[in-house]
């Protein structure tokens, strides 16, 4: 699914979190929103996911206006920085949640849900942890379960907020490759937020550098490295 963002702005009271920004995201791309805290990257991601609503501007999904769609209608697979797993449910129940939450007509049978959950557990390479509770998992395992849970609803896009932010350096490297593989397998348009320029440059097809609610530059990692648009981009992406 390709996404267009047209003159999108967001104010919290008198605070401008997002100046009018525009951006076109091609279908199937893996995009990084890169910037320091307060740059508006998470706000932009949350608007795409339907968790915040813009003060002005439009969002188009595959060419049709999605600005007024509710969060439930958007079918965006959203992964939070701290995963927000349901503590009182097993891994299996966590992943099955989105399917079971559907209206009866659209809900798959329990057998079908079981098949899909097991396929996702295989995809994240944790086939045997379905019966465990989140408190019994490591940080990296939690992140992958959160990813599988987001994929279970057959999302139209994948949105990840600092997906590696709460992990130590070694696990972070491993999971980066994991996300790349899952993106390549599913072909989903994937947008992730990060403040780590190395992570953005290594993983993304296209990097969107943001600062103070504005988009400073959009480009392939190599382009941004070679030709930074301004001093901010230069200093922020300097390795």
């Amino acid at each position: 699914m390709h996404i267009e963002i047209e003159e999108l702005a967001k104010e919290f009271g008198t605070e401008r979190a997002l100046h009018p920004v525009s951006l076109a995201i091609p279908s199937g791309a893996l995009i990084a929103l890169l910037g320091p805290s307060g740059s508006g990257k998470t706000t932009l991601l949350r608007i795409l996911g339907g968790l915040e609503f813009p003060t002005s501007g439009r969002v188009l999904f595959d060419g049709s206006d999605a600005t007024g769609l509710t969060v439930q209608e958007r079918r965006a697979g959203f992964v939070f920085q701290h995963y927000a797993l349901f503590k009182h449910m097993t891994v299996f129940e966590n992943i099955a949640y989105g399917l079971r939450a559907r209206k009866r007509r659209e809900r798959p049978t329990e057998a079908e849900i079981g098949r899909r959950v097991n396929r996702l557990l295989d995809l994240i390479q944790l086939p045997d942890i379905g019966a465990r509770y989140p408190s019994q998992l490591s940080g990296g395992q939690r992140q992958r379960v959160a990813l599988a849970r987001a994929l279970a609803i057959e999302p139209r896009m994948l949105l990840l907020d600092e997906p590696f932010g709460a992990l130590d350096a070694k696990v972070r490297k491993e999971l980066r490759q994991g996300l790349r593989d899952i993106h390549d397998t599913t072909g989903l348009t994937t947008i992730f937020v990060t403040h780590d320029q190395e992570e953005a440059m290594e993983l993304a097809d296209l990097v969107v550098v943001m600062s103070m609610g504005r988009i400073e530059q959009v480009g392939k990692p190599a382009e941004i490295r070679a030709r930074p648009a301004n001093d901010f981009v230069r200093s922020f992406t300097a390795a």
């Binding site: 939070f80 701290h82 927000a84 949640y97 559907r102």
Partner: peptide, 15 residues
């Protein structure tokens, strides 16, 4: 309560 848990539930399509 962690608001993100409620948000994630909504993104998964739950009313």
């Amino acid at each position: 309560l962690d608001r993100e848990v409620e948000e994630v539930s909504a993104t998964l399509g739950a009313r």
